[in-house]
């Protein structure tokens, strides 16, 4: 069997992945396996293995001249490396990425651990949307006194900066090592 990446050497590394009944198979020669980092599980990337193999349909049909305004990464780079330039790139290239991410993973949304400040932001968002709902009900039932109270709460809550920004800047709050 020939290597899927170089179609040249004999393949000796066989990778298979089945997720939700969808099977992906890649056969590589030792050189290509090494080049694609099929080594250490701690750094192994299924994305690397797939990059340059077969067609990346999503990349083909989406807009080609996209560029990240934060880091300057382009669609061409994405196609070449199967990597992103910065965290903002995920927004810029979301169309191209969605299919790729879907094919790589078990699901399409994160359900694990979140940073603390993010949890607080999310709680605030939920609280605000609840209050807005209450406000609507109060106005509809012509309970204007109640509506005014709710409006005040909303104003107070939304004027608060989000918890992360509220803290002293990381540099000053973080104890610098003495040594």
């Amino acid at each position: 069997m020939k290597c899927d990446a170089c179609s040249n050497a004999e393949a000796s590394v066989f990778l298979t992945k089945v997720i939700d009944g969808k099977m992906q198979k890649v056969n590589l020669c030792p050189a290509c396996a090494k080049a694609k980092g099929v080594a250490d599980p701690a750094s192994f990337q299924w994305g690397d293995v797939l990059s340059g193999i077969g067609s990346s349909h999503d990349l083909e049909r989406t807009q080609k001249n996209l560029k990240c305004e934060v880091c300057g990464f382009t669609q061409t780079e994405l196609k070449k490396t199967a990597r992103l330039g910065c965290s903002n790139c995920y927004k810029v290239f979301s169309d191209a990425l969605s299919g790729m991410i879907k094919s790589m993973h078990k699901g399409t949304s994160h359900i694990g651990k979140c940073p603390c400040h993010f949890r607080a932001e999310r709680e605030k968002k939920e609280l605000l949307s609840n209050l807005e709902e209450e406000l609507k009900t109060a106005v509809e039932s012509e309970n204007y006194e109640q509506a005014a109270k709710i409006r005040d709460s909303i104003r107070i809550l939304s004027s608060k900066e989000n918890p992360k920004e509220n803290q002293p800047t990381p540099a000053s709050s973080f104890p610098l090592p003495l040594s």
Binding site: G47, R83, L84, S87, Y90, L97, I101, H110, R122
Partner: peptide, 15 residues
């Protein structure tokens, strides 16, 4: 960190 994608990484296979 992104609400939907979780921790954002250089390679999409780690998000």
């Amino acid at each position: 960190f992104d609400e939907t994608l979780g921790y954002l990484t250089a390679c999409p296979s780690n998000v």
